[in-house]
Amino acid sequence: MEWLRRLRHRTRDRWTRPVHTVGEEPDYRFSLANERTFLAWIRTALALLAGGVAVVQLVPTFSIGWARHLLGIALIVLAIAIAATSYARWERREHAIRLGAPLPPSQLPRLTGLGITVVMVFALAFVLVDVARGHR
């Protein structure tokens, strides 16, 4: 049962240990910049959420019935992906800053760019279909 005790100890450590115990006190400006980057991602998630809700609730129907829901769900799923990973990203970077290590790479900018591009292409396609069918 030794391994179980050690595992429990480690998980408890991970949650109770403040970020402050790893490495050394960094330049506070780096920590604040990391915090602002975290907040910028949170705002991005909020904007995507607002866009997703608005496209379903405020935009008039396309001739393709499910078009608004497809766009809205895609936007909100992207928002969830950003919001759910935001804390881990902040902590990883805080660790790296404290250890003086290079910042860990992140796939999120690529994923966000790709996701928004796909949504925009679909939105354009839906509008063009409407125009071709003389829907409006």
């Binding site: 403040p18 970020v19 402050h20 006190e25 960094p26 506070y28 920590s31 604040l32 990391n34 915090e35 975290f38 804390y87 902040w90 902590e91 805080e94 404290r98």
Partner: peptide, 8 residues
């Protein structure tokens, strides 16, 4: 360090 993990 001003970092505060609980707020984040």
């Amino acid at each position: 360090s001003p970092a505060d993990r609980r707020v984040v």
